[in-house]
Simulated scan of single mutants.
Amino acid sequence: MSEQITLYSNVASPYTHGVELALLEAKVNFKKFEVNLKDKPEWYTKVNPVGQVPAITYGGPDVPPDQPSPESVKLRESTILLEFIAERFPEARLLPQDLVLRAKARLFIDIAKTKLLPAWFGCFRKGEPVEAVFVALEQLQELLPPTGFVVGEWSIADAYISGILPRAEIVFENNLNQSGWTEGQGQEIMAVLRGPRFARLTQYTQDLTARPSFKATFDKPAMTDMYKRLFASRAAAQKQ
């Protein structure tokens, strides 16, 4: 099968960002198509029947992204895509050969997916206690070695969380929420996250965002402006 890869993404999505980082770190040639999630093109269901991002087409002829070939394989779900990239391009070493370290990388992703994300969304969408976010972050922090990345070398575990932590910081730093936080509540949360309780996680986040692949794919001022507009539109919709 040919090596054609097209990533269907959305710049606001932390999940697509992680997949893009894995492709870049694997030094894979790929095309990227930005999907407007508020006005998805009808043809996109040929790529992902449920209409979500990220998704990729793999193999088949090299066609324009908006004309996906029936000969290409269509894959979706960020964690599945990360595993696929790691296994398809083993020379990139996005998963370690050691089985214990592989399990550790997968555990890290699982905690982020099943513990951190529900707590984060519950906090800024529903006003649920932020302590659940802190507990999930502590679980992730406990899996980190004293220095470096989750399993030593950068892996798909780091790709997955790289899309999440910087966006969470934007939400907290700018007090963006849908649940009526008091003035400065987000900044108070950030003060805890940058304090001694999360010293190792803070250094880890700095290491993640220092990667050339991350710098090439994350414009914090532009992302902040986008998130402010996104939350403002959601707030306006709630008042209607």
Rank of each mutant, 00 (worst) to 15 (best):
E20I: 09
K126T: 02
R197G: 06
L24T: 07
L101Q: 15
L24H: 07
I170A: 04
G122Y: 00
T205R: 11
P14Y: 15
L143V: 07
I109Q: 14
E3D: 14
A222N: 04
E77I: 08
P196C: 04
I170R: 05
T79E: 13
E83C: 03
F231I: 04
R93N: 11
E153C: 03
R211I: 06
Q139T: 09
V35F: 13
G18H: 15
P90D: 05
V19N: 13
D62C: 10
A157S: 06
L82S: 00
P61G: 13
A119D: 11
T16E: 15
S9Y: 08
G195M: 02
V35Q: 12
N177K: 06
K239Y: 04
L107S: 11
L208P: 09
A236D: 07
G163V: 06
E138T: 08
I5F: 07
G152Q: 03
Q52M: 10
A235G: 07
V150S: 08
P146M: 01
K40H: 09
E173G: 00
F149K: 00
I56D: 01
D98L: 05
I161V: 05
G148E: 01
K104W: 12
R197A: 10
K113S: 15
P118W: 06
L75H: 12
A157D: 03
G148Y: 02
L101H: 11
Y8P: 15
A132S: 15
L117T: 09
M1L: 14
V35P: 12
L193V: 04
A26Y: 07
T147F: 00
D62K: 14
T79G: 13
P70N: 08
E128D: 14
R211D: 04
E77Q: 14
A12W: 03
G152H: 06
G180S: 08
A222H: 04
A237L: 10
A159K: 04
K74L: 07
V130W: 04
G184E: 02
E87K: 03
P70G: 09
V47P: 13
G186N: 00
L101K: 15
Q67V: 09
K228A: 02
W154N: 02
K38W: 09
G60H: 12
L7D: 12
D110N: 12
V135T: 15
L117K: 09
V100F: 13
Y15M: 14
A191K: 08
N36H: 09
E71S: 14
I189K: 01
G148C: 02
D158Q: 05
L116W: 08
V150T: 02
I80G: 10
R211Y: 01
V151I: 06
V192S: 06
W154Y: 11
P90V: 03
P54K: 03
T202P: 06
I156A: 12
Y8Q: 11
D225F: 00
P65W: 06
Y8S: 11
P221Y: 01
V11T: 13
L94E: 08
A222P: 10
D110A: 12
T224I: 05
Y227F: 12
R211A: 02
A136L: 13
P212D: 01
